[in-house]
Amino acid sequence: MCLGVPGRVISIESNPLGMTMGRVSFGGIVKEVCLAYTPEVKVGDYVIVHVGFAISQVDEAEAQEVFRLLEEMDELGELQIPQPE
């Protein structure tokens, strides 16, 4: 339902209504994005953007979790392709 794309915050400013806006880069193209819902973000952080709004900040450590899990599974032998009998 909801396209959400991670992008890097490259600047933060306030609009005339006091709403926090920012410029977010997606592979080099830059969109103006509302940051009002992610008040903690800093320049350089990654946010998930949906229809021009940052709805979440990407957690760097959690982002690596899946790769750690794959390593673990590999050690446990859960990744070997079952041989047909």
Binding site: V5, F26, G27, G28, I29, K31, V49
Partner: peptide, 12 residues
Amino acid sequence: DDEVRGACEILG
């Protein structure tokens, strides 16, 4: 190109 990919991602 990266910029084209970025635009395609955000516009779906």
